[in-house]
Nucleic acid binder design. Structure first.
Length: 588
DNA sequence: GCCGTTTTCGGCCCGACTGTTTTCAGTCG
């Protein structure tokens, strides 16, 4: 685990402990915020504290959400490996209570009450007490048998409560359901919102929003879809169901909203929660009130109930404008400083014109050179690099030097034959555990494109991993560092190198960092792409295609890239043929 | 604990829903 991850856990634990001890809730909240800022940071705190502690302290204090107190705590933890306040708090709160706090329906007040009055300090103790003596729990203030029942249900559900669905499974399902709902007569508009609309790499549940005439029909359709396994709620303005389809089990909500307030509702249900909080704070400062019904003049409670006409409500754009803010695309709504300014134009799928990372049947792909080229050309690409695996990838059919050179000949022959696209001879060469590459330099020099990627020894410690990847970046024949961490979402964490050092080296040596669009990977991840851009790096948005349908993975990479603020100019695969080819040749 | 284009002190987003209540606290998103 990186130091940033360790620290964000420390602050999260302090926040939970403060809640359980009944401290000032705003103090607990600010610890949570520090945890989030640390999670989103692209730089390794350990590295920049080591470089110069006083500069580090000043730069930490400049971050919104981190003040003098928290900055000092971060330094204390990095320099000594522990934090006195954290240890004091952990000594006061039994460890098992943190798991109890995770049970849906149980919050800090109820957990503290059961701890104080009944001595319950773990999930096991809670389960046992509910089995043997539910009346004792029901008799506590503001409890009752219904509350006991809901805790029982929450306990049964809590093992799965935090499971998230990968973006690549959630998006196709959501698109299909959106189209089904949109086809219901009377429905004028349907969108998915929530973390899916923001393009997060994994999704908690699906949120749909509908407006139009007969919304009862939309609700009826939604709750009787063939994928529905359970209807959780079916009201006038909201329906909730559980869905199972294509290996995905997920909760989905449909909200029915009036067309006049569609933008306010879309803004509200898209989130993130933290972004919405910032917007409402700005509204209050300007003497207005923002909720899911609109932006209202004045700060009265529930202005929508008194028939007040909102200042803005129909579209998201007019709400941002009325707040005096730039329109923020959904992917950037994470309270990571987006209200201070957004990129002029985020990258779109249509901007991508080249694929620099793709495999054929020569290694582990499913397409011939000609088929791969046809698939790339069909998507309007001007350039395709054929980059099969190197010898260390035995399972993937990595090519020996002899086979590689033969393969490159065939690629060049295909390039001469096929019109409308340039086919380049390349390789995805392994970055070996010690940072050497899997082909000799004289072999690499004969290729048009070299993508260097780590595949093995992904459990290396951060220091070794940093040295390994730096060596690959400094190699003069490398164009792209492929899926730099090697992580697989939900399966393995991959390498945790010092990203700041990688970004600085990649910028200096003119190596593009890959954003691998395959939804199992999304590597680099969003915050790392952002860090890379801040350091002046180029990004190669690639699909790592092994079969035709893999080209469609681009959409996941684009969403991730947009979350990082990527503009077309910084993306080598969005460049014109002339510019891209010139850059590739500059390394030969 | 953090923050400031009204503030360095006194605030800190907003509404729905549930279950417990005679007016509202707790939880959730």
């Amino acid at each position: 685990m990186s130091t940033n991850q360790e620290l964000s856990r420390v602050f999260d634990q302090m926040a939970a402990a403060l809640e359980l001890l009944g401290a000032n809730p705003f103090r607990a909240n600010s610890n949570e915020r520090v945890a989030r800022v640390l999670r989103d940071m692209t730089e390794d705190v350990r590295a920049f504290v080591a470089a110069d502690p006083e500069t580090a302290r000043r730069r930490l204090e400049e971050l919104t959400g981190i003040g003098k107190g928290s900055a000092a705590k971060i330094l204390e933890y990095v320099e000594t490996g522990k934090l006195a306040e954290h240890e004091e708090l952990m000594a006061k709160v039994p460890r098992g209570l943190f798991a109890v706090l995770e049970v849906p329906g149980l919050g800090p007040k109820a957990v503290k009450l059961m701890w104080d009055e009944l001595g319950i300090t773990s999930l096991d103790e809670l389960t046992a007490r509910l089995a043997t003596d539910p009346q004792a729990v029901a008799a506590l203030p503001r409890m009752g048998m219904k509350k006991v029942e809901s805790i029982r249900k929450g306990l049964a559900f809590s093992a799965h409560a935090h499971e998230r669905t990968p973006l690549g499974r959630a998006l196709p399902l959501a698109l299909r359901l959106r189209d089904e709902l949109g086809a219901v007569p009377g429905v004028k508009r349907v969108d998915y919102a929530g973390s899916l609309r923001r393009g997060r790499e994994s999704i908690g549940d699906l949120d749909f929003l509908a407006a139009g005439g007969d919304l009862g029909a939309a609700a009826e359709r939604f709750t009787t879809l063939p994928e529905v396994t359970e209807v959780l709620a079916h009201g006038d303005t909201k329906c909730s169901v559980r869905l199972a389809a294509e290996g995905v089990a997920i909760q989905a909500d449909l909200r029915l909203v009036p067309a006049a307030a569609y933008g306010a509702a879309l803004l509200y249900f898209t989130g993130s929660r933290e972004h919405n909080v910032r917007l409402r704070e700005i509204a209050v400062r300007r003497g207005m009130r923002l909720n899911e019904y609109g932006l209202f003049q004045g700060t009265d409670e529930r202005p929508q109930d008194s028939g007040t006409t909102p200042v803005a409500a129909a579209t998201e754009e007019e709400i941002y404008a009325a707040l005096g803010l730039p329109y923020v695309p959904p992917e950037l709504r994470e309270d990571r400083g987006e209200l201070a300014g957004v990129p002029a134009r985020l990258i779109e799928a249509g901007d991508v014109q080249a694929e620099l990372h793709a495999h054929t049947t020569a290694s582990d792909g499913k397409l011939s050179i000609a088929e791969l080229a046809a698939a790339a050309r069909a998507r309007g690409y001007h350039t395709l690099a054929v980059t099969d695996h190197s010898p260390s990838q035995v399972i993937a059919g990595g090519l020996t030097v002899e086979r590689l050179l033969e393969h490159a000949e065939k690629v060049r022959a295909a390039d001469a034959e096929v019109d409308g696209i340039t086919i380049l001879a390349g390789a995805e060469v392994d970055v070996l555990p010690d940072g050497r590459l899997d082909y000799e330099d004289e072999v690499l020099a004969r290729l048009d494109v070299v993508v260097a990627s780590p595949h093995a020894a992904l459990g290396q410690d951060p220091k070794t991993a940093t040295a390994r990847l730096l060596k690959a970046i400094r190699h003069p024949l490398v164009h792209v560092l492929g899926h730099p961490t090697g992580r697989m979402i939900g399966r393995r964490g991959g390498l945790s190198p010092d990203m700041g050092a990688l970004f600085a080296a990649a910028a200096r040596h003119d190596v593009a960092l890959e954003l691998n669009a395959n939804w199992h990977r999304l590597d680099l991840r969003d915050v790392h792409v952002r860090g890379a851009l801040e350091a002046g790096c180029k990004i190669a948005l690639d699909t790592d295609a092994h079969r035709e349908a893999d080209f469609d993975m681009l959409v996941y990479g684009v969403l991730t890239a947009r979350r990082a603020g990527l503009e077309p100019a910084a993306c080598v695969t969005a460049w014109s043929a002339e510019k891209l080819h010139g850059w590739l040749r500059s390394k030969r």
